[in-house]
Amino acid sequence: MALKVINMSPAALGAAVGVDKSVISRWLSGKVTPSGHNLTRIASEIARARPGFSALAFEAPAEHFARVLDLGPGTVPLRRPASAEGPSVVGLELPYDALNDARKETERRGVEYFGHYSLYYWSFTRPGRVVRMAMMLSPRDGLIEARYGANGFEFGGWALLLMNRLYIQLSEKRYQAMMFMLTNPGQQPVARRLTGLMMGPSDRLMVPTVSPMVLERERAITGDDATNIADFEAAQDFDPFEQGDSAPFEVRHCLENMVSMTRVADTGVALVQVPTAEAEG
């Protein structure tokens, strides 16, 4: 939570503290507890952005932890206590028990979605070009953590599995731009290709922009969080536009059939036309 508040990546914290990023991953996963010396160094880095923060905050009640991070008392429920209904979850609550429903669905069939993917969609800033991103879906706190990125891009968030569809919300590392995705139902025993829509702000005017998307499974994740993160970071080391230009024919064909863009000459407004079920068939 502290890293998200000060907009610092685990890799940046590792560089600042002087430890390998794999060590940071083990700390964040709870597999290893930082020593008192390292907690002090971590607190010092957080205090650069949040003066008054100290290592004592890690042992303080949640309300105090939120206060020293300038979140304000009671404004954000940092963690709901574990109960018979499910494990504790970091973040805001959703009404109508949506999180518990997503947790139950994840427990039942989340394994069908966990994995490394290539994400393809029409560029928001370069009309007519396909973009490719690396994406990872992995289990976290009884839900599905979502990450995607490439050179110059890094997004993180959550995917709620409901009615065999993924409702994905992510935020961008640098500017907190939000991205939203909704997929069609997946396949068993694992989702091989997921289609859907994604929406976010375009770079120039920051206006809402929508595109069809295709998620192509690349490989499964491992049972080790540090290994998965390292694999994902290695997998996103590429130019998204160059990789998009070489998208497989089947993927490009799918993107073209899912949606068509029509430019209105007199207004310059781009209209989105979703094909009918007959056209999709």
Rank of each mutant, 00 (worst) to 15 (best):
M1K: 08
A2R: 08
L3D: 04
K4Y: 09
V5G: 00
N7G: 10
N7W: 08
A11G: 08
L13C: 02
G14Y: 04
A16P: 03
G18Y: 08
V19T: 10
S25A: 15
W27Y: 15
S29D: 12
G30Y: 04
K31H: 12
K31F: 08
P34F: 02
S35E: 02
N38A: 07
I42C: 07
A43V: 04
A43H: 03
S44Y: 11
A47C: 04
R48I: 09
R48G: 03
P51S: 06
F53L: 05
S54L: 06
E59Y: 14
A60S: 15
A60P: 06
A60L: 12
E63L: 13
V68G: 11
L69V: 09
D70F: 12
L71W: 05
P73V: 15
G74N: 13
G74W: 09
P77F: 06
G86F: 02
P87H: 02
V89F: 02
V90C: 08
G91H: 07
G91A: 07
Y96T: 08
Y96V: 05
D97I: 05
A98I: 14
N100S: 09
A102D: 00
R103Q: 14
K104T: 06
E105A: 14
T106D: 03
G110D: 01
G115Y: 07
Y121P: 05
Y121L: 13
R129E: 15
V130G: 00
V131T: 08
M133L: 15
M136Y: 02
P139I: 05
G142S: 03
L143Y: 03
A146R: 01
Y148Q: 10
N151R: 15
N151I: 12
F153N: 04
G157C: 11
W158M: 15
Y167W: 11
Y167S: 10
I168W: 01
S171R: 09
E172A: 11
R174I: 14
Y175A: 13
Q176K: 14
P185W: 00
P185S: 00
G186S: 06
Q187C: 03
A191E: 03
R193I: 14
L194I: 04
T195N: 08
L197T: 11
M198L: 13
M198E: 09
G200A: 15
R204H: 07
M206D: 05
M206E: 13
P208Y: 07
S211P: 05
S211W: 01
E216Q: 12
E216K: 14
R217P: 00
R217N: 04
R217V: 01
R219L: 03
G223C: 10
T227I: 14
I229K: 10
I229Q: 14
A230L: 01
F232M: 09
Q236W: 08
D237Y: 01
D239G: 00
F241L: 15
F241V: 12
S246Y: 08
L255G: 03
L255R: 00
E256M: 11
E256P: 02
N257V: 11
V259W: 08
V264I: 13
D266C: 07
G268K: 02
A270D: 12
L271W: 10
V272S: 10
V272K: 10
T276V: 05
E278W: 08
A279P: 00
E280T: 08
